[in-house]
Design a protein around this nucleic acid. Structure first.
Lengths: 323, 323
DNA sequence: GACAGCGTTGCTCACATGAGCAATTGCCGC
DNA sequence: GCGGCAATTGCTCATGTGAGCAACGCTGTC
């Protein structure tokens, strides 16, 4: 049975929140002092009898953000609520990334970007003039083996154009067949110059891929389904700038990694501003890996992913953090 | 797209309601004056961005109650929220009726009650000693043709016992076969005495039945399924104290009504306190009929039924009430 | 029966807040 | 460009509200 104090709390809450009466009025109405009413109300809030919700596609989950920042020493985090209607999580997260970039200070002189669906969505939502003079540089080899050729380039170009700056593309495949070829192409003056610019970027914006057959790297022909299966067998949970990592953020296959063109994970880890935009059910594992291995300083994600990342921190590899 | 004012409202609401910051703090955080913040917050509430809900089985819908009272000139109304979990609406409404009876002032000297599932549920939930010296009198003929015999009696007795008073039962069938028999039985000293007591009751508590085969009157053998079908064909939506009425609250079948023993609808209409307890999807129509034809002065019901009653008032037979 | 300990109550006071109002801004038609 | 009008802004002031504190009562123990 509900206690009488609880019942009083309910009545008080109704009068206060629904009828907008003052605590004084409620007091005389229920035969209580106004302080008692105040206490009943705070009790009602604590007990969850009064539920205050902010329902808006652009709302954020500040408590989750704070927790993420503290637990993983992030510089910042943005968590958007999981949509209750049918709208796309990815779109909402992309919007949040846009908002983040627009108010990011200091404005990055050079922004290093990866490519893929997520970053492309951000690019297409960045409004014209979101910044002034932001140059963009690709941080990993572009997709160029199939019909989608150009997406990687257009992502970078779109961001640069709307940000009032120049785009520098990385004229190289993402993954080469031989380590020697990678060394050779990286030695080439053009490529080396771009990589240098990439290394010196004042901020990075990238996403992460899932280690499964749906990966853009498979789609683009860089990796076969068998390659992925093997990587998964060796513990891969996903990729960041084309480099496959396990749950602890370590490179899974060094040989493969040495054939991959672009900034290294170490460069991302030591970057002052590294913004990871990761959302969706399938990316929980890679999101955990990215955050817990400090691959990003800023995480932009959805509520469900944030919770998954935080839950993991209690029970998984970062168990030692539990006081 | 969401306007920038809306977005600011969302941010302010988050900081205010989730982070419990003061409007001042939010002001300096967002670069606004504290009054602007206050305005954004009230805007957020108006727009429904901030949703404040009172979640508790014993909560009430005061705005619906007020609307019912005003629209139908009720003395009082109690509306409980439709349960979100699996719990029974009927139980919640019965509890609300119990609460209502406990604080009803002046305490009725004599309470006239009908019988049926609903009233019985109320009876069994009334705590021992809910009142002192409340005598109970049955207001319509009791069920006595089948195994359930005694329920009607036990309802009245239970209410009287827990209310510290005497129960007076109406020793008569609900519906007789001939008008003459009804006249004869009502002329009998015992029955006449009870009816007189019933007529003089200081308050009435009753429910209403649906006009379909599930009715207790069918169950008890007073009416056949064919009788009900015929009543429905003539516009019956349900019964009150055994008397079938149409959507406008008029007796559907005078001949049948003259064979029915108990207080008349007119007596209910002119009663100072007539408490109708009606809940459930199937009873929306009869609830409408009861309320709109002033059969009760107090309605105790659930949210869905209340809304159905109010909606009807805009579009149905009481259309003329629209300003 | 005395007393310590704990929870509850009513209160003071400082702060947070909303109503109401004047000043300002932006906007439209001329 | 220029009034005029409406919306918005910043403000004063009265009121509402929560933190903190002392007094009270209740319970269980010795």
């Amino acid at each position: 049975m509900t206690t009488s104090a609880e019942l009083l709390s309910v009545r008080a809450a109704e009068l206060y929140y629904e009828e907008s009466k003052t605590q004084d009025e409620i007091g005389s109405l229920l035969g209580l002092t106004r302080w008692k009413v105040g206490r009943l109300l705070s009790q009602a809030r604590e007990l969850g009898i009064v539920r205050i919700e902010i329902v808006h596609p652009r709302a954020r989950k500040l408590s989750l953000e704070r927790e993420l920042c503290e637990r993983f020493s992030l510089a910042d985090a943005v968590v958007v609520p999981s949509p209750t209607d049918g709208s796309s999580v990815a779109d909402r997260v992309a919007e949040a990334a846009v908002d983040y970039l627009r108010v990011l200070r200091p404005v990055p002189r050079t922004l290093g970007v990866s490519w893929g669906r997520t970053v492309d969505t951000v690019a297409e939502r960045l409004p014209q003039g979101w910044a002034r003079g932001v140059d963009v540089v690709q941080i990993n080899g572009g997709v160029s083996l199939n019909r989608r050729a150009g997406t990687a380039a257009s992502t970078a170009v779109a961001i640069a154009r709307s940000g009032g700056g120049q785009a520098t593309l990385l004229p190289s495949p993402a993954i080469l067949e031989h380590r020697e070829t990678r060394l050779a192409i990286e030695a080439d003056r053009t490529v080396a110059g771009v990589l240098e610019r990439a290394a010196g970027a004042s901020a990075y914006l990238y996403s992460a891929g899932v280690a499964d057959a749906s990966s853009v790297l498979v789609d683009s022909g860089y990796l076969s389904r068998e390659d992925i299966a093997q990587l998964v067998a060796r513990g891969a949970v996903g990729d960041v700038v084309g480099r496959y990592i396990d749950a602890d953020g370590n490179i899974v296959d060094n040989e493969l990694d040495e054939r991959t063109v672009g900034v290294s994970l170490e460069q991302l880890r030591s970057a002052r501003v590294a913004i990871a935009v990761i959302s969706g059910e399938s990316k929980h594992a890679i999101a955990r890996a990215v955050v817990s291995s400090s691959l990003c300083s800023v995480l932009i994600t959805d509520e469900a992913t944030a919770r998954a990342v935080l839950d993991h921190a209690y029970s998984g590899t970062t168990l030692q953090e539990r006081s």
